[in-house]
């Protein structure tokens, strides 16, 4: 069912003009297409056969039956159309992923005026997902999106389709959502950590020690101190409860820096930074990121990691 390329291009351009992208779209007659399904044509054939039968047997009631079938079909046009009409679609959340893998976009459907049954959503090359929305409610769906290369991956045109209630007709609409998924740079292994704080940090990570600070001395234990830093050996020797004191390294925290990766291409720099974010994340050491035009303060945790990766993905338009 592939059209020749020039025709398809024309069609795509026409669609783009007719259905410009938006963050939120309520389907109306301008956007909804309708056409009989295969079964719909079969059904019409049956109606035609009954019509011929009625004519030949000069049987008015069989004729009436064939007219009833035809009328059902016509009324079904309205009902099928109605099932998609006034359906609202808007952006939901977005789940980023590494380039080459899959991200996901959340599509929120809302029913302002009536309920919508068995609506199928899909974008090209993906499986259908079905959803029903009750009047006045919202439902959301996550649709996977392959992320080809780093950056913002715009949502493809979404196909919204329904055959409800009789399956005789198919009504559909294309929705261009102004919605995107961030594709993080694919991590690229690199030995040098492009971070302020230098080599000792890097070694500290690689040797797997907990803590990266210089040991400074002991002080008496203050409640609230981390129990990991208590000098348990000393306590066992009867020296009382003492806390090990460490000196923070220069700058206090790690800064991953773009400008320490001189001589690499843009994408490669981003990939190396991505790699090191993943490396630093499990260390529970606050780390920050300095990119041209954006500085993100050091912190730890999942949210922080995502924020940094998102920054790498959206570089240079944050």
């Amino acid at each position: 069912m592939q059209l020749p390329a020039p025709i398809r291009n024309l069609y795509e351009r026409w669609l783009a003009r007719r259905l410009p992208p938006a963050r939120q779209i309520v389907l109306d007659q301008r956007r909804i297409f309708i056409f009989p399904t295969g079964y719909g044509f079969f059904y019409l054939l049956v109606a035609a056969l009954l019509f011929i039968g009625g004519i030949n047997y000069e049987n008015n009631l069989i004729l009436a039956l064939s007219f009833l079938l035809a009328s059902l079909f016509m009324v079904a046009i309205l009902h099928t159309f109605r099932n998609l009409s006034a359906l609202g679609i808007r952006n939901g959340g977005s789940e980023s992923g590494f380039a080459g893998e899959e991200g996901a976009l959340e599509i929120v459907l809302f029913a302002q005026r009536r309920e919508h049954h068995c609506v199928w959503l899909r974008w090209r090359g993906q499986d259908d997902q079905q959803i029903s929305i009750r009047r006045g409610e919202e439902e959301s769906l996550w649709l996977n999106l392959p992320l080809a290369k780093r950056g913002r991956v715009m949502a493809p045109r979404l196909k919204v389709e329904s055959r409800f209630p009789l399956g005789l007709l198919r009504t559909w609409s294309y929705v261009s959502l102004d919605h995107y998924c961030l594709a993080w740079p694919r991590p690229e292994e690199s030995l040098d950590c492009p971070a302020d704080g230098g080599k000792e940090n890097q070694q500290a990570f690689s040797s797997g020690q907990s803590g990266n600070d210089e040991f400074q001395g002991l002080r008496s234990y203050i409640p609230g101190d981390s129990l990991r830093r208590v000098d348990w050996k000393g306590y066992a020797r009867g020296r009382g409860l003492n806390t090990k004191q460490f000196e923070e390294p220069v700058g206090g925290r790690l800064w991953l820096r773009w400008d320490r990766l001189q001589g690499l291409g843009e994408e490669q720099r981003l990939s190396v930074l991505s790699y090191w974010i993943l490396q630093l994340d499990p260390q529970r050491q606050p780390y920050g990121l300095k990119l041209p035009g954006l500085t993100l303060a050091p912190d730890t945790g999942d949210v922080h990691r995502w924020r940094l990766l998102d920054a790498l993905a959206s570089y240079p338009d944050f």
């Binding site: 047997y57 009328s71 059902l72 009324v75 009902h79 209630p165």
Partner: peptide, 29 residues
């Protein structure tokens, strides 16, 4: 739902019944 659709179809059916021209039988039965 089916009842609603059928009831809505009946007036249409009557219109078709009254107005669609009756053709002579194609073959006799």
């Amino acid at each position: 739902r089916a009842l609603v659709i059928t009831l809505q179809s009946i007036p249409l059916m009557m219109v078709l019944f009254l107005l669609v021209p009756r053709v002579a039988p194609l073959w006799n039965m």
